[in-house]
Design a protein around this nucleic acid. Sequence first.
DNA 1: GTCGCTCTTCACGGAAAGCTTCACGGCCCG
DNA 2: CGGGCCGTGAAGCTTTCCGTGAAGAGCGAC
Lengths: 139, 139
Amino acid sequence: MKLSVKSDYAARAVLGLARAFVTGAARKVEELALEQGIPGNYLVQILLELKTKQLVRSVRGKDGGYLLARPPGQITLGDVMRAMHGEVLDPPALGDPQCPLELREAWARLKAAAEQAADSLDFQTVLEQSGDREKMYYI
Amino acid sequence: MKLSVKSDYAARAVLGLARAFVTGAARKVEELALEQGIPGNYLVQILLELKTKQLVRSVRGKDGGYLLARPPGQITLGDVMRAMHGEVLDPPALGDPQCPLELREAWARLKAAAEQAADSLDFQTVLEQSGDREKMYYI
DNA sequence: GTCGCTCTTCACGGAAAGCTTCACGGCCCG
DNA sequence: CGGGCCGTGAAGCTTTCCGTGAAGAGCGAC
């Protein structure tokens, strides 16, 4: 099942903001877009949705832009996916009474597994993985 | 992320065939379609794809129809999803060199988790769950 | 206060995929 | 040889995805 690029773009944007989180400065949309290879006007919509879901916040005017609403450790891949698509994984069978109950339970398990995995991947950890990689070069 | 109904339909069809597996008889497409609430002409295409992926086989002519190619215990939800969509879960980031490496690793983990979960759900187990439920009614 | 910078909002549109249906040809059995 | 069933391809319709554009509104600088 192919995922949409939207959640991918969103995750990249959050990662970009996570890197700047310690500085406390806001990052501009166009700057993020160029850095991450995302169409600027599309990224605008994505950030807007992330904002309504309280994952990021915005600052207007000069030196404005976007920044994370919480520390990177408190934002997970699951949060981002839910912000974009409502659910991490949503099997249509769960809402269809015609689907045999035992099969619906199987889909529910798959959904739970994906959700659990996505919720255990937070952006602080992702950042630290890149840090670990850099350290290795010093050896 | 919403899944398509296609893999849902496919799973229902496989479950219907799994129930009839012990009898060794082939089930007709239209029969399965009515029982599972699937558009008949669409189910034909699905079964055709399942057949090319060697999950089911067909018998032509009178008393023809479809049956499982292997025992229900050797067919998993992962098999069905891969037959329909190529992958259980396919994040576009994995094929995009512009995506930061550490983020791609996070997507890869999510994918692996979903795959592992889907592959551990086989149809024999699903059948037995419905059996367990029936037993409970006898208490 | 006005000007430039930035986010905000809304609307549009092409492209692709998903879902469904139709039509016709081929195989098997009585 | 004829009826029932699978095999195959193609054609619509609908919805979602992806991306673009332009006009409106808050903030700071001067």
